[in-house]
Structure formats: C-alpha cells, structure tokens
C-alpha cells in the first residue's frame, strides 16, 4: 500500500516536471524568436545559441534523465560534447590562421581574392 502511494506520488511529480519543462521550452522558443527581431548586432547569434543551449539542457537533464543517470552515462554524454569541442576548436584554429586563395576552377564571385593580382585566376 505504502509502495503504491510512493509510486503514485513519484508519477505525479514526474508528470508535473514534464509539463513545466514543456512550457519552459515553448516560452524559450518564443524568446529566441523575439530576440531575433531585436537589433543586437553580433549578440543576436549569442542570444540564439544561449537560449538553444538552455533548451537542450532541459531536454538532456529532465527528458533524457541525466539528472538521475549514473557516472558512466554522464561520462558518455560529456565525451560526445568534448569530442565536438575538439573538432570545433582545431578546425576553427585551422580556418582562422589559413589564408584563402581562390583556385582557377572557382568563379571570381564565389570567393573574394585575399591578395593582390598574383593570386587572381588566369
């Protein structure tokens, strides 16, 4: 009897959590939409990504139940994110430090020349 009550309470709590999380996700979506129409310059992208990060966090923590998961599962989740960060940083460093030079096969309007006449397509 006591076990049934505990289970029922747990389910009611879970149901409430899901409902609130759903409402929060929809409100955050509308906030993201609204922020896109505000003139924030480069902060528009930051705002969009931060809100998306919060939404993804709600999905991962509450819906995917990372909050009650063990160390091994949390480690798997973090490992994926960590590997992506390595991809982002190393690719970003590569592109940030490499000079772009158009090749002959590219039409001029696809890529603005990085240097002077020496690098212009023949």
């Amino acid at each position: 009897m006591a076990e049934e009550c505990a289970a029922s309470t747990r389910f009611a709590r879970e149901r409430r959590t899901i409902a609130w999380a759903w409402i929060a996700l929809l409100l955050l979506m509308l906030t993201s939409l609204g922020s896109a129409y505000a003139k924030l310059g480069p902060w528009n992208m930051v705002a969009g990504l931060v809100i998306a990060g919060i939404k993804a966090g709600i999905v991962a923590w509450l819906f995917m139940r990372l909050r009650e998961a063990g160390v091994l599962i949390r480690l798997a989740a973090v490992a994926g994110l960590g590997a992506w960060c390595i991809l982002l940083v190393l690719s970003g460093v590569d592109y940030a430090t490499r000079t772009l030079t158009p090749t002959d096969v590219q039409r001029p309007q696809q890529l603005p020349p990085a240097h002077g006449a020496a690098s212009q397509p023949r």
Binding site: M29, L33, A36, Y37, N44, A52
Partner: peptide, 13 residues
C-alpha cells in the same frame, strides 16, 4: 533546437 535559430533566425531584424 540548435538548427532552428541557426537556420531561421539570422538577421531577422
């Protein structure tokens, strides 16, 4: 969740 702002909400203003 990430595709939405990155594809639909660039420079809407």
């Amino acid at each position: 969740i990430f595709l939405y702002p990155l594809l639909y909400l660039v420079d809407r203003h």
